[in-house]
Design a protein around this nucleic acid. Sequence first.
DNA 1: TTGTATGCGTTATCAA
DNA 2: TTGATAACGCATACAA
Lengths: 345, 345
Amino acid sequence: MSVTIKKIAELSGVSRGTVDRVLNNRGNVHPETAERVRKVAQQLGYSPNLAGKALAVRKKSPLFGVILPSEGNAFFDDVIAGIRNAEAELRDFGVRVEIRTMRGFDPTRQLKLIEEFEDRISMLLLVPINDVRIAEKIGSLKEKGIPTIALNTDIENSSRLCYVGSDYKKSGEIACGIMALLTGGRANFGIATGSFRMLGHSQRIAGFHSVMKARYPGLKMLDIIETNDDDIQAYEETCRMLRNHPDMDAIFIVAGGVYGVCRAVIRSGYEERMTIVSFDDIPTTVEMVERGIIKATICQQPVAQGYLAVRKAFDYYISGAEPETDRFILGNEIKIRESLVDIDK
Amino acid sequence: MSVTIKKIAELSGVSRGTVDRVLNNRGNVHPETAERVRKVAQQLGYSPNLAGKALAVRKKSPLFGVILPSEGNAFFDDVIAGIRNAEAELRDFGVRVEIRTMRGFDPTRQLKLIEEFEDRISMLLLVPINDVRIAEKIGSLKEKGIPTIALNTDIENSSRLCYVGSDYKKSGEIACGIMALLTGGRANFGIATGSFRMLGHSQRIAGFHSVMKARYPGLKMLDIIETNDDDIQAYEETCRMLRNHPDMDAIFIVAGGVYGVCRAVIRSGYEERMTIVSFDDIPTTVEMVERGIIKATICQQPVAQGYLAVRKAFDYYISGAEPETDRFILGNEIKIRESLVDIDK
DNA sequence: TTGTATGCGTTATCAA
DNA sequence: TTGATAACGCATACAA
């Protein structure tokens, strides 16, 4: 049979209560006794039983707070679906999840949202804005006993418990690889990024370039524009870029604004000759894949991201043990028309 | 608060034991009482609490039996890894998993393996061979109270609880789509299938053809060979096929024998001009992707297959409720060199 | 500082 | 046919 608190209590000649105090560092126990108990637990290789723990923890009904920049951003619909899946699975364990949404990437706004429920939550799940004030807030929350999990985007120099999301550099590498395959390794391409200030976007571009440099000398970059994840801006900028570079025959869309870029390409009459690689599979992107204008789109498993973040939050809440790794990376999946659209459609 | 057996007991004026007997159909309860209890449970929308259930069920220490045709088949290494992951997660709930392996697809052998532990297991997870005797065995096991989950491959006309695996037809469709993208829609290709008798292999070919017919008139099939998932046979047959069709410029590898096919292509001096699409990412396949001879390989998330099958087994064991769907389909992922190999390598 | 008692929700055993 | 009670492993309020 497995090792339980009861068994440790017997073998070290104390009560179950004392073992509990020792193992959970609740204080009020004689150092010698504590030492003895710890040793026995160590020797027996004790690890708390989840089923028991879950049942006991249930009445505390822990609340997980989630903050997403999801307003006006269809990508997060799938993340939310994953969060809801996990919430349903954990309901029997007393877990509740509260999601707050915001529009855009304003640190002040994000701080305010955090403060709105920080005195009620046991865990924070956050798509963090890369700003010192957010990093500091994560630190002060940690001191108050509220760990933070970075979701979808990581934040530097912070004390977040772990990161759940994709590997942005890798996704850029894959984007370059697939573009090379689709163009036979010869293309004059443009880049449409979201924002130069977004770490993930820059990492994708860096990944793209490193593969290009190492393996595909026939790929030549002509121009780069910023869409700010906005379809209108994407449309305008792309029209301008295409006017300036009539020899452009491929576009690498790094982030949002996919629909705007594609509409500009169609408008300019370059639909046929253009090879476009994008990210994610929000409905408007799927539409463009179906139409054939986007040849491949690289997806980051948003549902799994939401699900896993909540599960990892629960694991930590229940066990108090540091995660096995501080980065849980979900794979980048290449999707083409046949992946996304039913054949008979 | 949520609905518990205790609450139902109070409201229907009986003891918790009686409620348990009614809700779990253990018999020995007056029809009228049963009716009353059932009605209350119904009205309150009772659903058993998993944490409590897990704790109580723990001492029964259920054993899940798994049978895999994994000997000499590297694909199943990942499936096994997924099974082990799930086993570790469920250890605290008393679950144990016993894996039996076999070589090849002999129904008699599989029957024998089932019979070796069928009197000890609570659930069977099986990569079923599509044979009436196996289907019948699944039926008789069900009558004995042992449900079977079909893993990786489904079995027709059987009473298996559910299927966990990929959509083979869809994976064939994607294979055609990616081949068309890689060849600009113009290719004279050959097919190397595993076995004409394997349902999954035929479904992949069917999927390939349906997309080809609907969308890519420039793809022309020249020949088809059988590898029986054996590298030597694959090598021999491919050499022969290439001799017979010197104009072949693409190959669709449907199943195993990937390494053999690729070696034959290299041997014949067609490495440069050939576009090869394959399945899965076992080490030898990754090697060929790295070398650039395979342009894309379509993977079916073997780790997730193993993991999910065990989880679904547990869910059913714990809840006794029919799964939400009888087919749990894991997505087909297109992988290219940059997906599989580190850039700095 | 330590021990005891009780509860979380379900299941199983024993007695009535 | 039914009810009462103990058990699973952990947490905690309360008593000593």
